[in-house]
Simulated scan of single mutants.
Amino acid sequence: MTRPFASTAARDAFAAFPQPARDTLMSLRAMIYEIGKTLPVGRIEESTKWGQPSYATPDTNLATPIRLGLSKAGDPAIFTHCQTTVMNDFRALAPPDMAFDGNRAVHLPTDSALNLDELAPLIRAALTYRL
């Protein structure tokens, strides 16, 4: 079952993503909520920042925001705040073939098999950044 969108802006942001990027990003959205339920971070809030779906923990303020969107090349991507250590710390654990955009994003292929579970440590680290 797909979780209802928190706002029409979030719904419209996902609707604007082309296929198959939308499916990948929707799977990541579900992962963020699933992982969030296992952590002591409180409620996950979905909003939009810069036209992209964004996820934060407003009740505890423990997360650094996670955004979902498209890279400049049009690939689906997961973004974290570039002034945190989240992406660089994750890079040390990530598979060698994972494509990074500096310290702000992981680009996700749509033309090959993607193991989204490999992104779970990144999501966990972002949601608990200030813990």
Rank of each mutant, 00 (worst) to 15 (best):
L116V: 07
R104F: 13
K72L: 14
L28Y: 09
F90K: 12
K72Q: 13
A92F: 10
L119H: 00
C82N: 13
V106G: 03
D59E: 15
D101K: 09
N115C: 13
G69M: 12
G69D: 08
A113L: 12
A73F: 05
K49L: 10
I66D: 00
A77W: 09
A15L: 06
R130I: 01
D97S: 12
S54D: 13
L68V: 03
Q83T: 02
G36S: 09
A10Q: 02
T38V: 02
T80S: 06
Y129M: 11
T128C: 14
P96Y: 01
A6I: 02
T60C: 14
L114G: 01
H107S: 11
N61E: 13
L108V: 06
P18W: 11
I78E: 04
P96D: 13
A21Q: 15
A94P: 00
M31Q: 04
D23K: 15
T24P: 02
A15S: 07
P109V: 14
L116R: 04
I78C: 13
M31H: 03
T85W: 05
A92W: 06
Q83Y: 07
Y55M: 05
T85F: 01
S27K: 09
A105E: 07
A9C: 06
A56F: 12
D117G: 14
T24A: 00
G36Y: 05
A63M: 09
P4H: 05
R43S: 06
V41W: 05
T8E: 09
K49I: 13
G102L: 09
P109Y: 11
K49A: 15
A73D: 08
D111M: 10
A9V: 08
T64Y: 02
A126F: 03
F100A: 05
T60M: 12
D75I: 02
A125C: 00
P53I: 05
A10L: 07
N115K: 15
Y129H: 14
S112R: 14
F90Q: 12
R130G: 01
T128M: 14
S47Y: 00
R91V: 02
P4K: 09
T57Q: 07
M98E: 00
N88Y: 08
R29T: 05
L116C: 08
M98A: 02
L68H: 06
F79K: 06
H81N: 07
A6N: 03
N61W: 07
F90H: 14
K72C: 10
F14E: 02
F90S: 08
G51E: 06
A21M: 08
L131Q: 13
M31W: 01
K37H: 07
M1I: 07
D117W: 11
G36T: 02
S54M: 05
G69K: 09
G102A: 06
L108E: 01
A126V: 00
F79C: 11
A63K: 10
R130A: 03
P40F: 11
A120C: 06
A21D: 14
L114R: 00
T64F: 04
T57N: 03
T64P: 02
F17G: 09
D117Q: 15
R11I: 04
F14D: 00
S54P: 12
T2S: 04
V86N: 01
F90Y: 15
R67G: 05
T24L: 04
I35Y: 12
F14H: 08
T110R: 01
S7E: 07
N61F: 07
